[in-house]
Amino acid sequence: MSFPRWEVPRIAVLGAGHVGPVIARVAMDAGHQVSIAASGDPERIDLIAQVLAPGAEPRWARDAVEDADIVVLAIPLHRFADFDPDLVADKLVLDTMNYWPPVDGTQEMFEDRRNGSSEIVAHRLARSTVVKTLNHIGYHELEDQRRPVGSPERRALGVAGDDPGAVELVADVVERIGYDTVRLGRLSEGRLLQPGGPVFGASLSRTEFESAMRAEAA
């Protein structure tokens, strides 16, 4: 699958909970056109969008996805079982979700520990291209810890996916938002970004991030 290199990709954020509005905000700061959708009528998230992510357009999910180059999946993981794969068919999906049973309860679909949670998402979204990132930084940190290129405090985030073009495109977004990226060429390597993994929740520079990954792989 190839992706047109838009000057600035348009982003649809699915989810208006803890995470969605924060991603919408930092993406808009980075110059992206952003729409936001929850399940159902956009009117229900009008006020949330207006106050927490001013500038992001609340839309029906289908409309938001249709006009987007990147679809950010920021719904509660336990809702994913009811998520319609057709909605994001042929789209680049950025999976920010985590499987964390002690907090969110046991989800049968994600109990298969041979696969990472994003691989399970990708199996289900068989017609989409899935890239995993932004799952291992706290939603409350995502805004505060942005730094310009070259800042010694600039934090690194991993971007994992099987499609090099998709990883490239998403990594560009993450870097524009304010983070260095460490690109992982297999979605299966996204397991290293999961809860309990070496970089989950850790504020690391690119060098520290890479050596944490190597230490884990060794």
Partner: peptide, 14 residues
């Protein structure tokens, strides 16, 4: 319980 309290200001507004 963590991070900048300022980011909660929009919640009061909301």
């Amino acid at each position: 319980i963590g991070g900048s309290p300022a980011r909660f200001a929009p919640f009061s507004d909301l």
